[in-house]
Design a protein around this nucleic acid. Structure first.
Lengths: 254, 254
DNA sequence: CGCCGGGTTGACCCCACTCAATGATGGTGG
DNA sequence: CCACCATCATTGAGTGGGGTCAACCCGGCG
């Protein structure tokens, strides 16, 4: 069983056995347990290491002058957090956990070696950056043009898809200790309104929430409510190889 | 006088003379004049070339199911449009001009050679991708947390800053045949409301618009109205070299 | 037991949208 | 050179989606 990190990067292209081994090793060595609501990297800092989410949930966020928080992206198992740090002097946003999570760190020098000497790995990382960009662009559409109901549906559907892609779900359920306030900070809505929209999604039997356990009862319905188009995730390569693991996991969703 | 393309990439790091020469050559060879509102690359297509804006104004956009358009980013002189096409199978959004523009194309193979053999150039391109990501993240904050007035101010201030960085402005004025509808599609507002916000910015003597000529009368005031923080553009390297051309051009703005 | 962080509900309000009409402006062809 | 038309900017009136404020509930925990 591969690590979610390898699975994530392998959505794009199959690694050589050697590359896969190197990557697995990389994240298995230095893992650290974080609690909920802890910062991994803070805005303005420069970290010597690159971090990867192994399990749990983190997010990119920024605190505005007036104290409000905007979450710009969720980071799930397999997601690299800060590959940009090689190039940029300092982070322009913070990264923190939303629930207890395991985070691996990769020494910057090791990473640099890999990127220079392993074209396959470098390519996978570049691709990952481009997927991130696609997700950000889609979120701009989301905020610019969808109403609150679709926005919430969209956010949940995207999480579903991304968790599926790295294989950390049971059927259509996932454990996420995500609060309505987190969702509000991510969608640009108020917690009160998020609450009402979630109620509607539950009434319509699209989702169910019991404690921290989220279940998507009707993926197709949720997808429709979200006005979801998947092309921005560029999972097409996985889809085109239906026998691949990623292909199987995403069947019927994209 | 360097091309805006070189100036743009050199915001990050100084090139060797050889690299600079190669880049200048690259964009001077195959230039094409586009009219207003023409597509350069369309969603779903795969272009063999990479495009660079030489002059004018283009944007990344997507047409939604219901026919509305969302502009996700403006592309000004010096901006590469589609470096992602090396990796991704097809574009997940379109790129089109907003006013008559000159666009250079660089053959994909030539580009690939450069990226593999010229680490300085590859680095500059990666950096450019990361800056783009920063801009996208900032736009998410913009849409999520700012009101219409700040959003319009923000958009104008960002354009001011980016045009300054590549040196295509006279004082605080620039010629942009950008319509209020374009601004609306970029900010997620309606044209009517954009109109009212622009009126307010003019009443407050922050900007002036005569025909296609936009003038920023009060950069500091506009910046304040936009609640603008510049760190996401990562222009700090230019700032730290006050003697550099980019440093001079951005003095007092970041 | 009391506290605290979250979820839920209701009443009220305002920012931005909608719809619709009217001016400007500029390009085009006769 | 002017009539025409398309496009864009502007204005007004009315509406509604989502925000604000505040109360209350609930479960977990020290």
């Amino acid at each position: 069983m591969d690590s979610p990190f390898v699975m994530k990067l392998e959505q794009f292209r199959r690694f050589s056995d050697e590359d896969r081994r190197l990557l697995s090793e990389l994240t298995s060595k230095r893992q650290q347990q974080y609690g909920a609501r802890e910062d991994i990297v803070r805005e303005g800092e420069h970290s010597p290491d690159i971090h990867v989410v192994i399990s749990g949930l983190a997010c990119r966020y920024k605190i505005l002058q007036d104290g409000r928080r905007q979450i710009m992206a969720f980071l799930v198992a397999g997601d690299p957090c800060d590959s940009e740090i090689f190039i940029l002097k300092e982070m322009d946003h913070s990264i923190g956990t939303l629930m207890p999570s395991v985070i691996a760190s990769i020494p910057g020098d090791t990473m640099k070696d890999l990127l220079l000497n392993r074209p396959g790995i470098a390519l996978a990382f570049w691709w990952n950056t481009l997927q991130d960009e696609g997700v950000l662009r889609e979120r701009i559409i989301d905020e610019g043009r969808r109403d609150a109901y679709s926005r919430i549906a969209f956010m949940i559907y995207e999480i579903l898809l991304r968790l599926r892609a790295v294989g950390v779900m049971d059927d259509e359920s996932f454990d996420l200790a995500i609060t309505q306030t987190d969702l509000a900070d991510a969608t640009g809505l108020t917690p009160v309104h998020v609450n009402r929209m979630l109620q509607r999604l539950r009434e319509e039997k699209l989702i169910a929430v019991e404690g921290k356990r989220w279940t998507v009862l009707d993926p197709a319905g949720l997808r429709k409510a979200a006005q979801f188009e998947a092309n921005y995730l560029h999972l097409d390569r996985a889809k085109d190889e239906p026998d691949s693991e990623a292909g199987k996991r995403l069947k019927g969703l994209i």
